[in-house]
Design a protein around this nucleic acid. Structure first.
Lengths: 110, 110
DNA sequence: CGGGATCCATTGCGATACTG
DNA sequence: CAGTATCGCAATGGATCCCG
């Protein structure tokens, strides 16, 4: 089932309410390239604290964007992967990536 | 001239650093439909405080995303409009809008 | 009208310690 | 390894008052 924090009338506000924050956007970027382990994310997201990372992951899981899979192994392994809903956000991150690339060429040649 | 907070290697991080926050994304959404006055933005962005609105606008102006125009009239009028750089962010907001619309139809029929 | 300047409450977040 | 729990500070953001 899909969560229900009540939706704002504006579609952009809906999206912003779910991923309109620095860390969630960067987490999304990382998991878009394939499932990631907790430790991988912590390394890749330089500067994030453990607490904020776990809180963000839990929130995104509740929103149905990502899926958490626990492997009963020793040592324990946990993987975060995209749900279908999360996958459908790819165009957003793509647009951000394209903009970032274009911006870099602009400031690069000034 | 375009500002220079040093750019992260990842293009997505570059974009996130500039508009990876709730209010800036919503401000961008508003100004994308045409120049807006301070009061208009405050009304449209329900829940934002004056301080946060001014701070956000200043930041976006420094980043070269929006332009601030003061009209020497009585009563005073100030308009915020998109710069070319801000205009180039339209695809990002469009992607977010599309996602929000699609999401709404999904949760609507569950 | 569109802010600037304060003051202050809230809380986000980091640091640390402990666990299945 | 991948967390949970707690504590405490620094910063974000809200409320208020004033001004060009």
């Amino acid at each position: 089932m899909i969560p229900k924090k009540d939706l704002p009338p504006c579609p952009v506000a809906t999206t912003v309410g779910m991923i309109g924050n620095k860390w969630k956007l960067l987490i999304l970027r990382d998991i878009l390239t394939g499932p990631k382990r907790f430790g991988e994310l912590r390394k890749s997201l330089a500067g994030i604290s453990q607490k904020v990372l776990t809180d963000s992951l839990r929130g995104m899981e509740e929103d149905g964007i990502i899926t958490r899979t626990v492997y009963a192994e020793v040592p324990p392994r946990v993987e975060y992967s995209l749900s279908e809903l999360g996958e459908s956000m790819r165009p957003i991150i793509n647009a951000m990536e394209s903009w970032g690339i274009a911006y870099k060429t602009i400031v690069g040649r000034e």
